[in-house]
Design a protein around this nucleic acid. Sequence first.
DNA 1: TAGATTGTTAATCGATTAACAATC
DNA 2: TAGATTGTTAATCGATTAACAATC
Lengths: 219, 219
Amino acid sequence: MIKKVINKKNKKIPEPTLRRLPVYYHYIRKFLQDNKDDFISCTQIARELHLIPIQVRKDLEYTAAQGRPKVGYSVPDLLRSIEYFLGWNNTTEAILVGCGHLGSAFLGYNGFKDYGLNVIAAFDSDLEKVGKKISGKSIYSVKVMPKIIKRMNIKIGILAVPGEVAQGLADLMVQAGIRAIWNFAPVKINASKEVIIQHENLASSLAVLSKRLALRLAE
Amino acid sequence: MIKKVINKKNKKIPEPTLRRLPVYYHYIRKFLQDNKDDFISCTQIARELHLIPIQVRKDLEYTAAQGRPKVGYSVPDLLRSIEYFLGWNNTTEAILVGCGHLGSAFLGYNGFKDYGLNVIAAFDSDLEKVGKKISGKSIYSVKVMPKIIKRMNIKIGILAVPGEVAQGLADLMVQAGIRAIWNFAPVKINASKEVIIQHENLASSLAVLSKRLALRLAE
DNA sequence: TAGATTGTTAATCGATTAACAATC
DNA sequence: TAGATTGTTAATCGATTAACAATC
């Protein structure tokens, strides 16, 4: 029994599963808010999200959530399981570098708090912006960024800057102690292997969209 | 021979392949600009992008690009193959709905032209914004959106609006003739099966990032 | 009870990786 | 020529889907 749990924990989690979990989470939260029922089943989640029940069940298995046959999963328990599994139970603090349109959009969208991410400070090199606030968050000079990263022991950095300066800023972030960079700049960032770089590439998404549309229109 | 080509065309393209192709494309374009060589090999692309040669080769196979043993692929030919395969050879026109921070970021980033997407008009319901320009693009009232979609025969719509109004605007877009919606609003959009909906979900990416970081820090 | 649903093991499917002949 | 690289077929790996017993 215990062994099984350990095995499950050690098992590598498929990335597709990881990407689906927040989608379930979002739906289940809404389900809770609407106060529909205390229990929820895979069948129900699957129907709503246009998936198949077995896939939802498999995915939830990774979170170690415990369901009851015929009844389903306790809604609050299930939410807690997903939160815990994704490390969203204790909110992670992050900094944002670059307060252009994209960075501003990020600050304005405070929905990430539900997903365990709290942007505590924003930085920009433009002195016009420094000292001002966007969506209630103060903008600081990039010059003080390393100091703040160190002082507050921040591990996650969000990069929303032009491509030309992205690598240099990433280097500064890593030197100061950042361990994961969420990169929205349209260039590849190089860093030591210990640093996790997640590149948000809209061109990839566009390729999927345009190919699917082209195939559809050719039918 | 002909039969083989037909088979290849009919073969379903794996989504991972589709997502990698723009990454190759971007690198090869840069390679061409830097004027390094007339030919490029899978080995080289793989080394640069931290992939393995066989994967690059397999992916390029889908585009029907023709390489020469020992030599590699002709750089301009390869670019053309990818462009053609992804439908980027003739630029697709799109409209943008929502000129908040995110929409503005979209208009400001004109890199999509390289990827076959041209945002020809932007719409907003805020009369303060209507008539102004962002990054050289005029903003129109959403009221005229259907008319313009029809008149210009636009097939792709980009949704960058608050969640509350997303579904309503999507319905209007589809009614006017939009066949693919790139959705940045943090809600699920429902539409008839004929319409392609691509939901850009940052929470999914965040889940991958935060789980990877949590595992890393626990090591 | 009967039927729906979980938990778990097995089968299938598809993407990745390996192997190797052809070739420049 | 020798060695690198393509093109293609085969093997492997991992994710998805199916099957079914357990159970509430």
